[in-house]
């Protein structure tokens, strides 16, 4: 029950909360932001598990590029 245990614990709590919000939020833009936050927490979890390669890939693709593509798609769907 050291420091690392609690770091894992809180990162996984943030991960689950982000995933729940990404599914159940009504506002689509907020849902995309929640997905991005979940991806960032997942990259932190990969870093805590001593896999920095996967952490960089997850932070770059999951939190950066996927969010941008989703926001472009939302802009295209909504005509106002």
């Amino acid at each position: 029950m050291g420091m690392e245990y609690w770091a894992h614990f809180f990162t996984l709590i943030v991960l689950v909360i982000g995933a729940y919000l990404a599914v159940f939020l009504r506002n689509l833009l907020a849902s995309v932001i929640a997905l991005s936050a979940m991806s960032l927490a997942l990259s932190l979890e990969f870093y805590l598990l001593h896999a920095p390669d996967v952490a960089i890939a997850e932070a770059g693709i999951g939190a950066g590029l996927t969010t941008a593509i989703f926001i472009f798609a939302l802009r295209g769907v909504r005509r106002d």
Binding site: P52, D53, A55, I56, A57, G60, I61, G64, L65, A68, I69, I71, F72
Partner: peptide
């Protein structure tokens, strides 16, 4: 840590920033 794929994705995220 890192490599071609991760670095290329980071550079491409600068493109996403510019386009937004």
């Amino acid at each position: 840590p890192g490599g071609g794929f991760q670095g290329g994705a980071v550079i491409a995220s600068s493109t996403a920033l510019f386009l937004v």
